[in-house]
Computed example of a mutant assay.
Amino acid sequence: MQTFEFCLLICLIAVMPSVHNAEKPKVKISSGEKPVYVGDTVTVECSHESDRSDSTGWRYWWYRNGGHPSQGQKTEKVTVDQPGSITYQCGVKNDHYTSPYSDHVTLTVLELPSQPILRVLPSTSVWKGDTVTLRCLSKSGLTGTKVTYTFQKGQKSEIKKTPQNEHKINLAKQNHTGSYWCEVEEGKKKDKKKSDEVQLTVKGK
């Protein structure tokens, strides 16, 4: 090999990104609520150092509890449906490189208490025009028993009575600010259980 060609090859190698020395991906689990109960939704994200330089062409693989991998997105929203510990790992690959697996990250999910829990999503503080979801988590709703959910604002204002455990507020306004709670009624038992109140604040833009 001539001297010029050899120098050119060395220079090209020097400037090429060293994907083979890349760090393992990292799993990040985030939830607006702590602790996490059955019925909550969490976000799992697979971050990789190549995201900072080249975000195209990467495919993401997720491993749950050490099971078979499934292809997914960089960020996934997961609604947990049973109590216990769930471990997540991820890997990334493109046409030229496959990463090692990330380290395990464990999510602990608690059994729901007997009292319902009201979740206000995405947050208890939102901007005018945002969509707000009121979600009533109930142990009764997991048993297959017919359940009726009542969503209320304050002490006297009933918003909705429904067999669904969610109620959406579209295009939130500042007069939606207030304390909200939900009540669960089980089928023929007529046994009513009420959540604690949760304060929602709608800020003006």
Rank of each mutant, 00 (worst) to 15 (best):
M1W: 03
V38Q: 09
L110S: 10
I29G: 01
N65P: 00
K26D: 11
V42Y: 02
E23W: 04
C7T: 13
C46K: 00
N65F: 00
E76Y: 02
S102M: 04
Q82Y: 07
T133G: 03
L9A: 15
V38P: 01
Q82W: 03
T43I: 07
T56A: 08
H48F: 15
V27D: 01
Q2P: 15
G141V: 01
S55G: 08
S30M: 07
C11M: 14
T106W: 02
V36C: 08
K93M: 14
K34Q: 13
V78M: 13
L118A: 03
D103W: 05
K93F: 10
P122A: 11
T108Q: 14
P122S: 14
K24V: 13
R135K: 13
S31Y: 14
C136K: 00
G84Y: 08
P17S: 10
V109I: 11
R59H: 12
G129F: 01
R135G: 00
K34W: 09
R64A: 06
C46S: 03
T43V: 05
R135V: 11
T56W: 12
L137N: 01
T106C: 04
L121R: 09
I10H: 11
S53C: 10
Y60D: 01
T56C: 10
R135W: 02
E111I: 03
G32R: 15
L134D: 00
S138L: 02
T3A: 14
G66W: 06
S99T: 09
P100N: 11
D130L: 02
G84W: 05
E5V: 15
V126I: 12
L121K: 10
K24S: 13
Y101P: 12
P122R: 11
K128W: 05
T75F: 10
N21Y: 14
Y88F: 15
D81I: 05
T106V: 06
S50R: 11
H48V: 12
S102G: 04
D54N: 15
G72Y: 01
V92A: 07
E111W: 03
S18P: 05
S138F: 00
I13K: 14
V120R: 00
C11H: 15
I86M: 08
P116K: 01
D103I: 06
V38M: 07
S53W: 10
M16A: 12
K74D: 13
P69I: 02
P35G: 01
L12E: 11
G91W: 04
V120T: 00
L110C: 02
V15I: 14
G32P: 14
Q73I: 04
S55I: 08
T106E: 08
K24M: 11
V105L: 09
T87G: 07
A22V: 06
W61H: 06
